[in-house]
C-alpha cells in the first residue's frame, strides 16, 4: 500500500493498475508453472479435505487449497482452520479451539 493507493481509496478512485497486474500475474503464473488444470486442482482440493476431515473436524467452507509461487518454486498451500480434533480428550479440544489452529501442508 502506498500513499497514492491510500489517497485513491479515500477518494473512491481505482487503485493504480500496476498492483492489480502484479497480483493477477502471480496467480496465473502459479497455475502455469504447476501445469495443473483448475479441474484437477479442484479434485485434489476435495480429496485433501476428505482425508483431513477423517482426523480433525475442519470447517469445509473456510478451508482453502491454493497454489503460491515464489522464485520459480510453486507450493501447494492448504489453509484449513480446525474446529476440533476428533477422538481426543475434552481438555485438549478446548485448547485447540481457543488457539484457532490451522494446518498447513
Amino acid at each position: 500500500m502506498t500513499l497514492r493507493d491510500i489517497i485513491n481509496k479515500l477518494l473512491g478512485r481505482q487503485v493504480a493498475s500496476a498492483s492489480t497486474a502484479r497480483e493477477r500475474l502471480q496467480l496465473v503464473l502459479a497455475h502455469d508453472r504447476s501445469d495443473l488444470s483448475p479441474d484437477l486442482l479442484d479434485k485434489m482440493r476435495r480429496e485433501i479435505l476428505e482425508v483431513v476431515a477423517k482426523y480433525v473436524d475442519i470447517d469445509l467452507e473456510a478451508g482453502a487449497v491454493s497454489l503460491e509461487t515464489e522464485d520459480r518454486m510453486t507450493a501447494l498451500v492448504a489453509n484449513l482452520p480446525i474446529k476440533k480434533t476428533i477422538n481426543k480428550p475434552e481438555s485438549t479440544m478446548e485448547e485447540i479451539d481457543q488457539k484457532q489452529t490451522e494446518i498447513q501442508i
Binding site: 497514492r4 493507493d5 493504480a16 493498475s17 498492483s19 497486474a21 500475474l25 502471480q26 503464473l29 515464489e70
Partner: peptide, 15 residues
C-alpha cells in the same frame, strides 16, 4: 504513477 509494472516487479516475478 504506478500504472506500469516496475523493474523489480518483473525481476521478482520472473526470478
Amino acid at each position: 504513477s504506478q500504472d506500469m509494472l516496475s523493474v523489480e516487479d518483473v525481476t521478482d516475478i520472473l526470478a
